[in-house]
Design a protein around this nucleic acid. Structure first.
Lengths: 182, 182
DNA sequence: ATTACTGTACCGTCTGGACGGTAATGTCAA
DNA sequence: TTGACATTACCGTCCAGACGGTACAGTAAT
């Protein structure tokens, strides 16, 4: 996504794939359907992404990049207090949910196609946890906050988000409190 | 699973499907492969489960039943203290992980086939949260514990369990502490 | 001439499911 | 007791459709 203006074909294709994953389920994302939704021919799709795996790989990478970018922004704001990383994670979740971001089913579509496509995400997650631990004065509590955030992110992915708005607010508020003393 | 002895065909089929989901990914569970793994013909499989959807439905129901059963056991032990439900959830997670239960990828396989197959799980989860809230004296804190548990359950499902054993112990310990004062 | 596609035709593979058997196990009347 | 029939639990084959991917000729803009 390079600013406003007509998004590039690559971006439109990735967006179409993610939308489809949300609508028809992560297991029914066919290249034909993606091409149609993106307003491009199948030949054109395969010109941009030479295989389905490459497309899904790009989608995973896109998500990770976005997250990293947000994390950089938020931690910059916070200087280098002891709890800045986990606290930034809470912020990011809160922002995403105010925009009510649709669940990142592109990730699931990748998992379905081939579990190895999530290897970069594993690495990312591992490094993030390391940062959180080494940046907090109360590791156990920071880990709890992190895991709760993961739960909040995963459940919608599984189409199992059953929280009311009130519950979500309550939760975020509590997580922020915990992150602040961490 | 009706005690020891040869498991019924239905049970063997369900077990085979879950194993396959773990091994080849939740998107590549074919009826042929399930039948072969279960030591039965494809015709026989379709005799027991008239469609793939019915098979996956049964797997989801099986998981929910098991959880409900464990919950009943554990809450019985605890009498009716204010935090008994959330505390039982922590216990159940701990037990599952000591048995190092493979991730419940049958659930994912169901999601891939048809997201509606998880509707029963949604209802289950919603009712559980209601019980937890009405049974706790500190709702926010109980919700945090619940979400952290969901995170712990979901990540392995996505093949993204990156915690060390030590981290997991630390987490469970902290969750138990939180549950106890909830 | 190169880039970034379009459009169509096609191929091989996989998969869910339908279908027609069949062997073993009752069930029941004569 | 026995023969006739019904039910259960399964086997093995076949098929239509979907899907990923290839090939290739054409085109409009740079």
């Amino acid at each position: 996504m390079t600013g406003p203006g007509r998004p590039s074909s690559r971006d439109r294709i990735m967006a179409a794939a993610v939308e489809l994953a949300n609508e028809v389920g992560p297991g029914h994302v066919s290249l034909d359907a993606v091409a149609q939704r993106a307003g491009i021919s199948k030949g054109g799709l395969l010109y941009n992404f030479p295989s389905k795996a490459k497309l899904l790989e790009a989608i995973v990478a896109y998500h990770l990049d976005k997250f990293e970018e947000h994390l950089l922004d938020k931690t910059k704001d916070k200087g280098d207090k002891a709890n800045s990383v986990i606290s930034a994670c809470v912020d990011i979740y809160e922002v995403d949910c105010k925009k009510d971001m649709p669940p990142a089913s592109g990730i699931l579509a990748a998992l379905v196609e081939n579990p190895n496509l999530l290897l970069p995400a594993r690495g990312f997650s591992r490094r993030l946890i390391d940062r959180i631990r080494s940046n907090s004065s109360n590791e156990a509590s920071a880990l709890v906050v992190y895991m709760a955030l993961e739960g909040l992110r995963c459940l919608p992915l599984l189409d199992m988000d059953v929280l009311s708005g009130e519950e979500r607010r309550l939760l975020i508020e509590e997580l922020r409190r915990m992150a602040d003393v961490t």
